[in-house]
Design a binder for these strands. Structure first.
Lengths: 136, 136
DNA sequence: TCATTCTGTAATTATTTTTATTACAGTACA
DNA sequence: TGTACTGTAATAAAAATAATTACAGAATGA
């Protein structure tokens, strides 16, 4: 994940929490994050699917947290934005003629799975409320 | 890290270990990994700077492990290839007018540092020898 | 009712990052 | 002294990410 989706998602959620349930527009969020509003709306859509935010369409619409910040752990956010293994896999398939090349992806995946579990467990110990408190 | 440098570095080191100290050429390594030899040589150069491999120039040259696989922990490899925070930062600077935007990068960095330490500690429990043993 | 202000999403373009390629100097060997 | 390597810079190609444009649809309220 070399993209900034985790940062963006955390930023969105922090703002929504600070706004204490008020409807916040994607334009406002995009202005604080300093990215394109369309990206914000896409991420809001992902966060909504995961049950972290709710959006309301139409005039005076916007988004708010779908559950208490104390109940949102950071691993939930990670899972929303996760796409590839953290440590990055070779896109080319290694040489299947080579005894190492033939097996390495399997073994790397095992390692990556284990490592990711550790990361997730660490993120799971922190809530959005904890993070948001840093801004007070 | 959306690139595949960690995978590549592990692949290189595993092959060198399997070859038990013999000089292995970058072309051979590249053939097993299925990437361009120049990339392999660059990574070998980074691994050499970190004291993990040694390279020998000239005819019949190549590379070999600079220390025992039992003494190489995977966090060392991670540190060689590490470039950005794992969880990815927004490239644009958030709006400094916004109370959240103004502070968020600092707080995210703290979170990222902590998270990365957890990852490193986990990788530190495993050696190249452990990983390489999976291929026997 | 209908103009306004939002969300949702698709399609396209631009930018940045990553990877591959080309080129060539320098080293070691036999 | 030719051959087979490493080392590295420069460039090009490909892939991933982000921005933009465009527009349909929803909710509001004048």
């Amino acid at each position: 994940m070399n993209n900034s989706r985790f940062s963006i998602a955390i930023h969105i959620l922090t703002l929504l929490h600070q706004e204490k349930g008020a409807l916040v527009s994607s334009d406002y969020l995009a202005g604080s994050i300093n990215i394109n509003p369309v990206l914000v709306r896409k991420e809001l859509s992902n966060l909504a699917k995961a049950g972290l935010v709710t959006s309301k369409e139409g005039k005076n619409g916007g988004s708010y947290l779908a559950k208490a910040a104390e109940k949102i752990t950071l691993d939930e956010v990670y899972k929303v934005v996760r796409q590839d293994y953290l440590l990055g896999q070779n896109k080319n398939t290694p040489n299947p003629q080579c005894p190492v090349g033939k097996q390495i992806n399997g073994h790397l995946n095992t390692l990556y799975d284990k490592t990711e579990q550790v990361l997730i467990q660490s993120l799971a110990t922190q809530t959005l409320a904890d993070f948001s408190r840093l801004f007070d």
